[in-house]
Design a protein around this nucleic acid. Structure first.
Lengths: 248, 248
DNA sequence: ACAATTCGTGCAATATCGTGTAATATCATG
DNA sequence: CATGATATTACACGATATTGCACGAATTGT
C-alpha cells in the first residue's frame, strides 16, 4: 500500500460519503490508526480536508465554496444552462437527467415556459414545482441515492415506450475517443436507454469534464447531437470529431 | 458519529425546518439528550443558532418557514409523527403518501432505520436521501403539482403488483360517516388503490381534519387500521365507530 | 402553586490525539 | 554492492475530547 495511493483513497471516500472515521478506515485497510491519523493530519495541512475528532470531513465550507466553485463551476454551469434554456422555446418534450448541472437548467427555465418534462430524478421533479405550465412525468424505480435518480428494471421498462424531442444527458466525462462516460454502470446503461428514446441528445458540459474519462461508458461521441460548453482549448478534439458545440 | 458531523446535521435540519427539538433529535440519532444539548450550547456560542428552552431556532429565520408554519399545525404533526415513527421498528416495508404530514414523519425517522419505503411523492423521496439504510422505491407517473405526487395510469399500474406492510395515508378530512376524504378525485382513487395493496392503513390526522369532509371520498372508516391523533372531543364519534386511535 | 421538563455543571469512563521513539523499508549515491 | 539518508510504520504514553449519568437549579405548562 503506497502512501499517496492511500491518501487518494481517503479523498475519494471523502468525496463519496463526506466523512472518514479514522478507526473504521484503518480497519478497512488493515493498518494502524496512527497511520491513517497521520495521513489525515497531512491532508488537512494541505487544506484538502477538515480534520475533526474521530476522523475528517470534507474541507470546511468557506474553503469548500471556493474549491467547489473552482471544481464544480457553479457559475459556468448557470451560464451554460441559460444558453440551453433559450433553445427550448419551440421544443415540446424533453427528458432531464439528474445531477447538479440539469438542476441549474431547471433554475434557468422561465417560470411560464410550456413544456413536457420527463425525469427520473425526484430532485429535478421537486425543482419544477413552480413551473405551472410544465407537465412533469416522473419515471419510477429504485432510488440510487448517490446521484438521486431512479434505476433498475422498472425504470427501464417505464422509458421503453416514451419518445422525447431532447434528452439532456448528465455525464462526468466527455472524450473524443472514449465518448461519454459516467461513474456507475447501472446509471450508464440507463442513460444509454434514454438516449435511444430521444430525437436529440444534448449535454451541458462544464470545463472539468471536457477530455475527462470516467469508468463506465454511456456511448460514443456520435450519440450526442450537441453540447453546451465554455470556450476551451480542450474542446478542439471534440469539434474535430464532428460534435456540434454551443458556447456563450 | 463524529461530533462535527452531528453539528452539521443540526445546522442542516435547522435550515430545513427552522427549529430543533433536543429530545427528538437525540432520539433520531440514538444519543443522549446531554450530548445534543451540549452541541446546541456550543453552536449557540458560535452564533450559529439561537438557543431556546427545549431546543434551538435559526439564528436568522427565513420567510419561508414563517409562511410554512402559518396555517399548519407543524408542532402537532411533529409530535404525532414521532409517535408513529416508533411503531416502525419492526416493520419491513411501508408506502408513504405525499403531504406535509408524512414529510414530518420522514423527519422523525431515526437516521439509521432500516426499511423499504415506497412513495409516489418526489418530495418524500428527496427527504429520505440521508437515511442510508432506507431503500426507496419511487412510483412514477404524471406529477400532480398541487400535492406533489404522481398519478395516472402508469402510477396505478406501478402499484398493482406491490405489497407493503403499512400505508401511511394522507387525507384532508376524516368523518365517522363520510369516511376518509381528500380534495381531488384522481388522488382519491390512487389512495384507494394503494390502500388495497397494504396490510395495514394508518393515517396521521391533525386536529383540523378530525370530523372534516372533503369533496372526494377515498373510502369508509373501516379502510383504516388505526390513526394517530391528538386527544380531542371530536374524536369520540370515530372511536365509537370502532377506529383504533393512538395519542401522544 | 405544583408537577414535569429542561438546563447547566461536575464527574468518571472511554476514545482519540499528538508527540516521541524504535524498527524496518526504500532511496540516493559513491 | 555498501552505506548513510530519508520515509514509513507501529507502538507507547501523557494530554485532550467526548459521552452519559447524577444532581440541584431554572423554566414551563396546568
Amino acid at each position: 500500500m503506497l502512501t499517496q495511493e492511500r491518501k487518494q483513497l481517503i479523498l475519494i471516500q471523502l468525496k463519496k460519503t463526506g466523512r472518514i472515521v479514522a478507526k473504521d478506515f484503518s480497519e478497512k485497510l488493515k493498518l494502524s490508526e496512527d497511520t491513517i491519523r497521520r495521513d489525515l493530519r497531512e491532508l488537512a495541512a494541505e487544506g484538502l480536508l477538515q480534520r475533526v475528532h474521530g476522523g475528517a470531513l470534507q474541507a470546511s465550507p468557506t474553503i469548500a465554496n471556493l474549491a467547489e466553485r473552482r471544481g464544480m463551476a457553479i457559475e459556468e454551469k448557470a451560464k451554460l444552462a441559460h444558453l440551453a434554456a433559450k433553445s427550448l422555446q419551440r421544443v415540446q418534450s424533453i427528458f432531464l437527467d439528474g445531477g447538479t448541472t440539469n438542476l441549474e437548467l431547471v433554475r434557468a427555465l422561465p417560470l411560464d415556459l410550456s413544456l413536457q418534462v420527463f425525469t427520473h430524478s425526484p430532485t429535478i421533479a421537486v425543482a419544477l414545482e413552480q413551473h405551472d405550465q410544465v407537465e412533469v412525468v416522473v419515471i419510477g424505480g429504485s432510488l440510487f441515492k448517490h446521484s438521486m435518480v431512479t434505476l433498475g428494471a422498472s425504470a427501464a421498462r417505464a422509458i421503453e415506450n416514451l419518445r422525447v424531442d431532447v434528452f439532456f444527458l448528465g455525464l462526468t466525462g466527455l472524450h473524443a475517443k472514449e465518448g461519454a462516460t459516467t461513474g456507475h454502470h447501472e446509471e450508464a446503461a440507463m442513460k444509454a436507454l434514454i438516449a435511444e428514446r430521444a430525437a436529440e441528445v444534448v449535454s451541458i458540459v462544464s470545463h472539468e469534464k471536457v477530455g475527462a474519462v470516467s469508468p463506465h461508458r454511456i456511448g460514443n461521441l456520435a450519440m450526442l447531437t450537441a453540447i453546451y460548453a465554455s470556450r476551451n482549448d480542450r474542446l478542439q478534439p471534440l469539434r474535430k470529431a464532428g460534435l456540434q458545440i454551443y458556447s456563450p
